[in-house]
Amino acid sequence: MSTFIVNGEIREVSDALTVGDLLDRLSVSHQTVAVMVNGAIIAREAFATESLHERDAIEIVRFVGGG
């Protein structure tokens, strides 16, 4: 079990060693989101290899309606 700050909220997530793992544990599609870890943007191709560490701050965003 690791503790991350996901979209501003503290979350306990098991077996999340990479960004890709975390998205899978949260059931978030890799295709429709952009991810930032501790302020650094992670390219989609790097989701599977980008390691996560305890207390990392992760932002997961996607497109919504707007003008």
């Binding site: 909220e9 599609s29 952009a34 997961i60 965003v61 996607r62 497109f63 919504v64 309606g65 707007g66």
Partner: peptide, 12 residues
């Protein structure tokens, strides 16, 4: 146009 906002992690 679209906006960029946080995913609702509780309702992915």
């Amino acid at each position: 146009t679209v906006a960029l906002r946080r995913v609702n992690v509780d309702n992915p």
